[in-house]
């Protein structure tokens, strides 16, 4: 580890596809994730983006942060747009109107655009078996419109539409398990990732791109603005999410689960939660409830991974 800072940057291309000048908030974990993901995807990529933070910060007319072909149309239809792109390219290549070439078709959306409003279009595209990569950048609420809850918001988190109040703990439902929903489509590749583990994330994205057929990668993207935390904590919180078992990093390859990082002992959820204002209001018994659930879910995942 001695010369880590010297050698590690050489392992990653310096060439950026998602370039500076965008207007993401200070400390944005999602912008970091997108930048690293794009490095992994490389130049032969077409990206369809849903409406959301990354769309808004990167494309105010007449500027762009994208060095690959990129299209945004609406909020809930990204997977369908990607279906059209993939099918169109396939036919144009078959008919010899464009050169045969390996082009990775990528759909990107946030957690709202994926697990709520875009779920139907995503399910359709996964089921039809298009050769594309779907990347969900999960910052656990509708951050672009001002921190409203989504089905991906964790239990107990306060948002502007799940506020903590005298008779409410904030979000009263448990986070929707989107990777499991993707895996239930029996697609060849599903993974979870986090930019706090950059090489793991980039490897998974490369693997997803190389997978024939649909691939789904769910990327936890820390949002200091929405999570009410200091702006220098994006990396630390991503690590803690993994180390507490709240957001385990795993793959589902052709139905087989594999846990990428396991820990002899998980850190307590409070190590993660106490750094974030969105959980500040929670009482000890609620935190205990969350701890129990995280422990149980993690054990179940681990069991599934052992079974393979």
């Amino acid at each position: 580890m001695q010369n880590y800072g010297v050698y590690v940057p050489r392992l990653v291309t310096k060439k950026d596809i998602f370039v500076s000048g965008h207007r993401a908030c200070i400390g944005c974990g999602e912008a970091l994730a997108v930048r690293l993901v794009c490095k992994a995807l490389g130049q032969n990529t077409i990206i369809a983006s849903a409406t959301g933070c990354m769309e808004i910060v990167s494309s105010p007319l007449p500027t762009t942060s994208w060095k690959v072909p990129w299209i945004h149309t609406l909020f809930e239809n990204t997977a369908a747009v990607a279906s059209g792109i993939e099918s169109g390219l396939k036919m144009l290549m078959k008919k010899g109107r464009i050169a045969q070439q390996d082009i990775t078709v990528v759909a990107m959306a946030g957690d709202g655009g994926t697990s709520d409003i875009g779920l139907q279009a995503l399910s359709g595209a996964l089921e039809r078996g298009h050769n594309f990569v779907y990347l969900c950048f999960d910052n656990e609420a509708y951050m672009n419109t001002g921190i409203q809850r989504s089905s991906s918001t964790p239990y107990g988190a306060a948002t502007t539409t799940s506020p903590a109040g005298k008779v409410s703990i904030g979000q009263v439902s448990w986070k929707k398990n989107m990777p499991a929903i993707a895996a239930a489509h029996n697609i060849p590749y599903v993974a979870t990732a986090c930019p706090s583990y950059p090489f793991d994330m980039m490897d998974k994205v490369k693997k997803a791109a190389a997978t024939p057929g649909p691939a789904y990668v769910h990327i936890l993207s820390v949002c200091p603005t929405g999570w009410r935390c200091p702006t220098d904590l994006a990396i630390k919180l991503g690590r803690l999410a993994v180390e507490t078992g709240i957001f385990p990093l795993y793959e589902v390859e052709n139905g087989k689960y594999k846990l990428n990082f396991d820990f002899p002992e998980l850190k307590p959820v409070t190590a993660y939660m106490k750094l974030q204002g969105r959980f500040r209001h929670l009482s000890e018994d609620i935190i205990e409830k969350i701890q129990k659930r995280v422990t149980a879910d993690y054990a179940e995942l681990k069991e599934r991974a052992v079974e393979g």
């Binding site: 747009v81 279906s83 059209g84 792109i85």
Partner: peptide, 10 residues
């Protein structure tokens, strides 16, 4: 939506 993507690649 799929038509948008398809038309966008020509």
């Amino acid at each position: 939506s799929a038509c948008l993507g398809s038309a966008a690649v020509g």
